[in-house]
């Protein structure tokens, strides 16, 4: 049983107009085996929250703590955070030319598990995991994310999630750019990983449609860099009906509907 505690997290980013505060004191606790949806309008800072937790160098932490079973993640480098059990599935996975998926995955699994998996079990595990995500075996030989379609990139993210078996997974807009079939396959992968490992999930999303496939236990509304409301799954239904308008400054509108 693990706990991810975010306490009064503040972060900013350097922009052309100077330093801009984006996270304004985020408080959130996620336990193993639970799924939290972070929902909010565009520009509310929910993706910044995801990247700040993973340690992206672009975001400067200005205060607060993030504890994974008591260890402060904010004092760790991104790779140390991953080895501590954090995983970020990115909205826009990065292409790494010349590095094959199979080489990259094996390197990552070796780093996270602390030892190289045996060749025989590894090959079997990889091919089975790829088959479950309906990925062409040829993808293993291709360069990381290079020339992958949007849907293929998201499957490759979930493949890594399944192989790396983190304690907590952050899914950043994992549903974006997916058609219904791909959304189902990707969601099944996430649910399978949760079932197999008992991981906790923080799912960042603008739209409610992914919640039909990955059922949240808790739904948070995120606006101007903070959690402004927390409820059960029924809160997502309210957002679907009413949109984010009431969380936005007066005079602006936005719809939560896909």
């Amino acid at each position: 049983m693990s706990t991810l505690e975010i306490k009064d997290l503040r972060a900013s980013v350097e922009t052309k107009e100077g330093r801009k505060q984006i996270l304004n004191g985020v408080n959130l606790t996620i336990e193993s085996n639970t799924t939290h949806a972070i929902m909010g309008p565009n520009g509310s800072g929910k993706s910044t929250l995801a990247y700040t937790l993973a340690g992206h160098p672009k975001y400067q932490v200005d205060g607060g703590e993030v504890l994974l079973d008591g260890q402060n993640l904010l004092e760790m480098t991104p790779d140390e955070r991953a080895r501590a059990g954090l995983f970020l599935a990115m909205q826009y996975p990065v292409e790494v030319p010349g590095v094959s998926m199979t080489n990259f995955l094996r390197t990552a699994v070796t780093a996270v598990q602390g030892k190289a998996p045996s060749i025989r079990t590894w090959t079997k595990e990889l091919s089975e995991a790829m088959e479950r995500l309906r990925m062409d075996p040829k993808f293993a030989q291709r360069s990381v994310n290079e020339g992958f379609s949007g849907g293929e990139k998201k499957r490759a993210e979930v493949l890594q999630l399944e192989l790396l078996r983190p304690k907590f997974a952050i899914l950043d807009e994992t549903d974006s750019g997916l058609d219904v079939d791909a959304l189902r396959i990707v969601s099944e992968g996430v649910n399978r990983a949760k079932e197999n490992t008992g991981m906790g999930i923080m799912m960042v999303t603008h739209y409610t449609r992914i919640l039909k496939y990955i059922k949240p236990d808790v739904v948070h509304v995120f606006a101007h860099g903070q959690v402004v409301e927390t409820g059960g799954p029924e809160l997502a239904d309210v957002l679907e009906e009413e949109g984010y308008d009431k969380y936005l400054p007066e005079g602006t509108t936005e719809s939560a509907l896909a």
Binding site: P93, G98, V99, F104, A108, A111, V112
Partner: peptide
């Protein structure tokens, strides 16, 4: 590319090893 490095680091690969992978791939 900082984004490439961050991507690999976020999967647990230490920075130096990530750099090696990128250069390896380059050649």
């Amino acid at each position: 590319d900082e984004e490439q490095l961050f991507y690999m680091e976020s999967r647990g690969v230490p920075e130096r090893q990530a750099r090696k992978l990128v250069v390896h791939g380059f050649f």
